[in-house]
Design a protein around this nucleic acid. Sequence first.
DNA 1: CTGAAAGCGCTAACAA
DNA 2: TTGTTAGCGCTTTCAG
Lengths: 341, 341
Amino acid sequence: MATIKDVARLANVSPSTVSRVLSNSSRISEETKRRVREALEQLDYHPNVFARGLVTNSTGAIGILIPPSMNQFFVNPFFAEWMSGVSEVTREHGVDTVLSTSARDEEEVVDRMVRGRRVDGLLLLGTRPGDPVLRRVSDQKFPAVLLGRPADPIPVSWVNNDNVKAAHCATKHLIDLGHRRIGFLGGASEMVVTIDRVTGYRNALLEAGIEPDPRLEVSSFFLEQGGYLGMMRLLAMSDRPTAVLASDDVLAFGGMRAAAELGFRMPEELAIVGFNDIRLAELANPALTSVRVNMHELGVRCAELLLKQIESGSPAYISEIVDFELVIRYSCGAHAAARNG
Amino acid sequence: MATIKDVARLANVSPSTVSRVLSNSSRISEETKRRVREALEQLDYHPNVFARGLVTNSTGAIGILIPPSMNQFFVNPFFAEWMSGVSEVTREHGVDTVLSTSARDEEEVVDRMVRGRRVDGLLLLGTRPGDPVLRRVSDQKFPAVLLGRPADPIPVSWVNNDNVKAAHCATKHLIDLGHRRIGFLGGASEMVVTIDRVTGYRNALLEAGIEPDPRLEVSSFFLEQGGYLGMMRLLAMSDRPTAVLASDDVLAFGGMRAAAELGFRMPEELAIVGFNDIRLAELANPALTSVRVNMHELGVRCAELLLKQIESGSPAYISEIVDFELVIRYSCGAHAAARNG
DNA sequence: CTGAAAGCGCTAACAA
DNA sequence: TTGTTAGCGCTTTCAG
């Protein structure tokens, strides 16, 4: 494997000159540049990323920290679409992305990434109150951007939807359709996103003069199976809901499977609204009404914000809110006829 | 940020001693170990990954190369489930995963990863005949494992399903159900996986004495929209198929959407079988019969094979075949009654 | 059992 | 415009 020295020798210049050509320094004669480039080509030289990183103190990579509880996130289209937004930006900037899923010791992986200087900045997600990872990253004053708002008053940049407002909007939609008894099907209850969405749900209820019933709020894990189980619980109640707001489309899918198995007709006997508007939402039967949170856009904004932060070196904490939109299809019953037979 | 020197100074030893303690060298007195560990703790020391990598010539990371054509792969659950398998293994081994999506110049990113020594090995996917990336990686004799078989006779380790056999099995299933006119809905036609699956499809046809009709083989991109468009083409034919084998579940979903829009009843008027058996297959209406290729398992095996290869330093080329299984649900019409109303 | 010294491959002053 | 020198933070001989 050719090193910079080999190139220098072949081109009859010093290593620093090669280095200068590599970084396209202005004050190098055209003639030398040519010679060096030729040698570069001939030896098929490529700079050792680590050696360079060691001296420049930068890595050309950002990290994504996936909390242990979130391995499911991989298989949730939500995460994938967010990632595709992130990746779009990093690709443009020629930056690599280091994925790190932590096992038991969440903080160990932060240390490896941050203090071990493996990456220049961190993208965080799925935070919850008391999150040790967020705390640690913030303490280190390491460039980082959080997807979602921080649960605790911790200084950090973040990008989020207004989940309270979004859940309020979706719930109000169901109320406007005449529902009074509305269930909430949530993911992990300790997660900020769940907390915010249940808050919006309750707010809408209260606003309409409906007393929130804790029994109508079920929460499980962020998987299809979780939605299935949760819906089973809801539908088993004697005073069961006539409509359900799911905190995630995959959860909604699971809920719909449960409802279908029990013979409920949707949306006539049970209206459903999901969250995130994954691509497959349109394909559910009936097509799922969902809150589009623009996951791809969230990914783009997260990555851009982080890259800007790294580049500028400024310690400013910025937060951004991405718009949402209620996409009305058939599962909520707003349209007279269901599309599928 | 504390360096190894700082620790050495505080513990009153030399840097090399600290290094030895770090790597748990045997011939260090317990007393010294204790002192060093204390200093380590006190300074919250973490080794600089790049400095270490520079001298050990290893990175503690593997790379995943996502070809430019595959940005959709991110949003295909297939990829996500494969990734979750990969990630499970890397997490266990404390290895990080570097994702790299290449833009125009595919080879540039290989060089950055391989020759730039950013990673110790590479996971490749979505290969096609003449793939320059695969060629380049193989030429460098860099540890690599390919998901899917190589299109050209290139020495490389790989993990795959027997896609020919799997497609044969799925097609035969449809033939056994009485279908004679069966369409094939494929992704990018140049990809090896598409080639193999269409081959298996044709084989089964021929075996049953049915002449394959090229007009029945439509291929588009690996997205829901691609399936939608492809199915529209198939159903617009005067001698349209009565059954369709889709080379991917998401494609099948798109196809089902098209069929539903056109008013076809499934499986009565149109039988469908998908490929990959993503989690959501079960939720389609009717529930999608699909070839389970065990994507998670594929991910696990890819990662394990690569890690083994890196560790052993052996240049052996190993290939593994992961079993498939036809999961029969309702979309193929094998069961009398559809589950959903 | 421990330290000194060299060097991994690169960049960045500082000279010339 | 170019070369020399030092050093990024670590591991690893080689001595002792």
